Simulated scan of single mutants.
Amino acid sequence: MTYAKDMASGTTLVQDSLASELRVSVGRFVRRLRSERGEADLPDAQFGVLTSLLRHGDQTPGALAQHERVKPPSMTRTVNALTELGMVEKVEHPTDGRLVLVRVTDTGRREVEETRRRRDAWLTGQLDGLRAKDRELLERASALLADLASG
């Protein structure tokens, strides 16, 4: 890569635009990985709701909408679609009778497990084709990307 100094700001500019290249390649990687899906072939939004429920427990549709950063009507449609598929169920809120909680069913849990298994299998196959030093580089890059994502 070629570096140049921006005299006005004093920052180093990467003329090959590392930020842009990384954004594009990570985006492509994520899209390819997400194409590996379970039997139900759920859209990303529905799969995201299932994983959120498994990670954080039962939630109201409103809390799910906030967590997934979507509007409540969109979450209502997503929850209804998952309910029709038998992936989630709506149960009474224990302290507020006006609310419902969304809970993952065994069917939803199996779908998440199968999707994760397929994604791991695809990625493992890709990694197996790399040289050891490239896998080590990706191991270091994985830690760096985790740090970037949490910052």
Rank of each mutant, 00 (worst) to 15 (best):
Y3N: 06
Y3F: 07
A4L: 07
K5I: 14
D6W: 09
D6H: 11
S9D: 07
G10V: 09
G10L: 08
T11L: 15
T11E: 13
T11V: 13
L13N: 03
V14E: 12
V14K: 10
V14I: 06
V14F: 02
Q15R: 12
D16L: 15
D16F: 12
S17M: 13
A19P: 05
A19V: 15
A19D: 15
S20C: 08
E21G: 08
E21Q: 09
R23G: 05
V24Y: 00
V24S: 04
G27E: 04
G27N: 06
V30L: 12
R31Q: 09
L33S: 10
R34Y: 07
S35N: 10
E36T: 05
R37G: 09
E39V: 03
E39H: 01
D41R: 14
P43Q: 14
F47A: 10
V49H: 07
V49I: 14
L50S: 01
L50T: 01
S52T: 13
S52Q: 09
S52I: 04
L53N: 02
L54Y: 01
R55G: 03
R55V: 06
H56N: 04
H56I: 00
G57I: 03
G57W: 02
G62S: 05
L64K: 00
L64E: 01
L64N: 01
Q66V: 11
Q66K: 14
H67A: 06
V70Y: 07
P72R: 12
P72A: 10
P73H: 11
S74D: 09
M75A: 01
T76M: 05
V79E: 03
V79T: 04
A81R: 15
T83L: 12
T83C: 07
T83R: 15
T83F: 06
E84G: 07
L85R: 15
M87R: 02
V88M: 11
E89W: 08
K90E: 15
K90P: 08
E92T: 11
E92I: 05
E92G: 14
H93F: 02
H93E: 02
P94D: 02
P94H: 01
T95K: 11
T95Q: 13
D96Y: 01
G97M: 01
V100H: 15
V100E: 15
L101T: 03
L101E: 02
R103V: 05
R103S: 06
V104E: 03
T105Y: 13
D106H: 13
D106N: 14
T107Q: 11
G108C: 08
R109F: 00
V112G: 00
V112W: 04
V112Y: 00
E113I: 11
E113M: 15
E114T: 13
E114V: 07
R116G: 10
R116N: 12
R117Y: 10
R118M: 08
R118P: 03
R118C: 07
R119W: 04
D120Y: 05
D120A: 10
D120G: 08
L123C: 14
T124M: 04
Q126N: 11
D128I: 06
G129N: 12
G129W: 09
G129M: 12
R131K: 12
R131E: 14
K133E: 15
K133S: 12
D134C: 01
D134E: 10
D134N: 04
D134P: 00
R135H: 03
R135V: 07
E136G: 02
L137H: 05
E139P: 01
R140G: 04
A143W: 06
A146K: 11
A146L: 13
L148A: 11
L148T: 02
A149C: 06
A149P: 03
A149S: 12
